[in-house]
Design a binder for these strands. Structure first.
Length: 390
DNA sequence: GTTGAGCGTT
């Protein structure tokens, strides 16, 4: 396969503190396609440590970089470039790095527009060549067909654009269903893979085109709701954030009484890769699992960090601090709820009152017995009602 | 100013 002894990674020192990874990548792209750049930061001060590791796709290019970019001036300092010796960890194939690297201080970089396009969108980019530069030591074969890595020039991330007008409005609610039910059911029918695709697409859009993302989410609240619930389901977001997000004033109950725009139910599926065409090449940052050959960049959601531990005692009761009568007596009606929750309930039709009461009075055991989708819905309902009492 | 991280477990 490959001459497996020399390192594909070079060690770069004497980097000015204000140089960004993109800048470095740009500089080293002179030698050939760059796979990854990691400036090391002091976790305490957040400042660059002045050195970095630049990884190429092959050893030849790395050697070439060492020879050709030795002492090149960058922002007034001459870089020192060597082949890297040590590997970061026992893992050779990929380390999930970048954990907790603080933001670059004064650097021009905002951050990697990470997120591979959803489902198989692969930008067909011509492989960056070492155009015009002194040739590598060996006639190394320039990698072909790579669709990621740092482009030699043009560090500007590809902006994802979507056709907002092409996003379906959704379909009318079936009789007897409320929007949140409908969204939950729809989500339940979405495969995890699809969900990840959607998340990845949305992430790309948000990072490269926040304005359009805002427009999309504002104009399609059901999408925003579904995405958020999906994040709960995928453990991307901890349910505790629901405590902090309470922009649901008087109209607390999402159930009836509130009819959002032409709402969903079975929307065909969020425009995945088709309407999110990655125009040309791909994000500069293959965070970790960068695979050279095909476009295999997969979005990996954060490892499930179990949040399933419910508060120890009295989870079914309002948090401490409520001035509820707090009768330890068995639940029998609204009286076990905070006053404001009772008020909110009172605005609902009888049948929904009953249903909500049941939901709000489920025991932890009962909740745990439900499937993930229902669990998330119920937890949210509970937050809306019980939390609104604060 | 000079060689890199550690969640939680297949």
């Amino acid at each position: 396969m490959a001459p497996g002894h020399a390192s594909k990674t070079i060690f770069v020192a004497n980097i000015p503190y204000d140089v960004s990874e993109e800048q470095l990548a740009n500089t080293f792209a002179e030698a050939g396609p760059v796979q990854n750049v990691e400036i090391k930061f002091d976790p305490q001060t957040g400042r660059s440590k002045g050195y970095a590791f630049v990884q190429f796709w092959d050893e030849g290019t790395a050697l070439s970089a060492v020879r050709n970019l030795q002492e090149v001036p960058v922002n007034g300092r001459n870089l020192r470039v060597e082949l890297s010796t040590d590997e970061p960890g026992p893992r050779r194939g990929g380390r999930g790095s970048r954990g907790g690297v603080p933001g670059h201080p004064g650097g021009p970089v905002g951050g990697p527009p990470g997120g591979a396009g959803g489902g198989g969108g692969s930008g067909g980019g011509a492989p960056p060549g070492a155009g015009g530069f002194r040739p590598p030591i060996h006639e190394d074969t320039p990698p072909r067909g790579f669709d990621q890595g740092y482009p030699p020039r043009d560090p500007i991330p590809t902006v994802v654009r979507i056709d907002l007008a092409a996003v379906p409005d959704g379909t009318p609610l079936p009789p007897g269903q409320n929007p949140t039910d409908s969204i939950s059911k729809t989500l339940a029918a979405v495969s995890p893979g699809q969900m990840q695709d959607v998340m990845a697409s949305m992430k790309s859009l948000i990072t490269t085109n926040p304005e359009q993302a805002r427009q999309l989410l504002s104009s399609k609240p059901q999408l925003a709701y579904a995405l958020f619930q999906a994040m709960l389901l995928m453990n991307i977001v901890d349910p505790s954030v629901l405590h902090r997000i309470q922009p649901l004033p008087p109209v607390a109950p999402p159930p009836a009484a509130y009819a959002p725009p032409p709402t969903q139910n079975a929307y065909p599926s969020y425009p995945p890769a088709s309407s999110v065409p990655p125009p040309a090449n791909y994000p500069p940052y293959p965070p970790a699992n960068a695979v050279p050959p095909p476009s295999g960049a997969g979005y990996r959601p954060p490892p499930t960090q179990g949040y399933n531990a419910p508060p120890p005692a009295g989870y079914g009761a309002p948090p401490a601090g409520y001035s509820t009568p707090a009768p330890p007596a068995p639940v029998g009606g609204m009286s076990s709820l905070p006053p404001s929750a009772q008020q909110a309930l009172a605005t609902l039709p009888k049948d929904q009152q009953d249903m909500l009461l049941q939901v709000l009075q489920l025991t932890p055991d009962q909740i745990n017995a439900l499937d993930a989708t229902q669990k998330a819905s119920i937890m949210q309902l509970r937050q809306q009602f019980l939390g609104a009492a604060a």
